[in-house]
Design a protein around this nucleic acid. Structure first.
Lengths: 157, 157
DNA sequence: CTGCTTGCAAAGTGTTTGCAGGCCC
DNA sequence: GGGCCTGCAAACACTTTGCAAGCAG
């Protein structure tokens, strides 16, 4: 999974550094949330983060996790993606790196719910087009694109 | 707005025809929902439909509207769009016409919430690319694209 | 110490479901 | 009439908020 273990170990520390530099408090709850997100390659729903964070800090409360996710989001440490319907999933962002580099676009099948990944670059043409035409700066990874996956297409026609 | 008033008047009737042809019952509640959507160029949230439908049929219940929207959706008379966050908006679809023809893509600003329209064709390249590469059939109008609008960009930097 | 963060519980949204009665066909 | 559709109320999932106590800095 990881090519340099050191880098892995540093992600959390980087986050903590950034918290301190912004005069934000480093609390067990926030560390738990960051730790949970750091250990997953997946994108987790708020409720999943609640569950996993509880595994680390049993006293951590649902509301606290939501507040932590909001705060960390404002600080740019955590980002979220809107999937179809009302589900939102969260993931860690690496402050140093350009967002586009490690981001991919999410494709969600409206029939089976599966989420596929597509390289971020499939959106670049659209992105510049929208920016030129309407002055709209598209955030490519912020929403999942909806449609039908191959499996469901062949199953249904 | 409309080139032939007759066509306008017929939209509802077309919907009713289709309901009957599918052996679906034509009830006051369903007519109210269809009528509300027919009279608006806007896309309405379920709750807005509830409010407006109540203006026509005061006894209509919230749950009934949700059920009607679901049923009409399955029949292809109504479509919905996922905006950012958890909001979903509904609109009438014209059974006869190719969906792409009168559909546009929605761009929602994550700062001010405004929804802009873009021509459907901005998505065509992406659409065929995804279909070729991953076998994923993109439904271009089903999700709003998120980003920052011109006004908010200049306000914020 | 100071006051940002937390835990708790309760309220808020937006949507869904079980059931008995009502109305479309 | 038969059975789908409706109204009602309650349940539901997810998220937010007010408040007092707790802990980071």
């Amino acid at each position: 999974m990881s090519q340099s273990p050191t880098e892995e170990a540093t992600r959390l520390e980087l986050a903590v550094q950034l918290l301190r530099s912004r005069q934000e408090r480093v609390t067990p709850a926030r560390l738990a949330v960051l730790g949970v997100l750091d250990e997953t390659r997946e994108h987790l729903s708020a409720e999943e983060v609640v569950g996993l964070a509880a595994g680390r800090v049993p006293t951590v409360h649902r509301a606290t996790v939501y507040r932590a996710l909001a705060t960390l989001g404002e600080l740019g440490l955590v980002a979220h993606i809107h999937l179809g319907g009302s589900s939102t999933v969260y993931h860690l962002t690496v402050p140093g790196l350009p967002a586009a580099a490690d981001h991919h676009v999410h494709l969600q099948c409206t029939r089976c719910g599966t989420v596929l990944d597509a390289p971020a670059e499939v959106m670049t043409a659209l992105q510049s087009r929208l920016e030129q035409d309407q002055g709209f700066r598209l955030d490519p990874g912020h929403t999942a694109l909806l449609g039908t996956c191959r499996a469901c297409r062949s199953a249904d026609g």
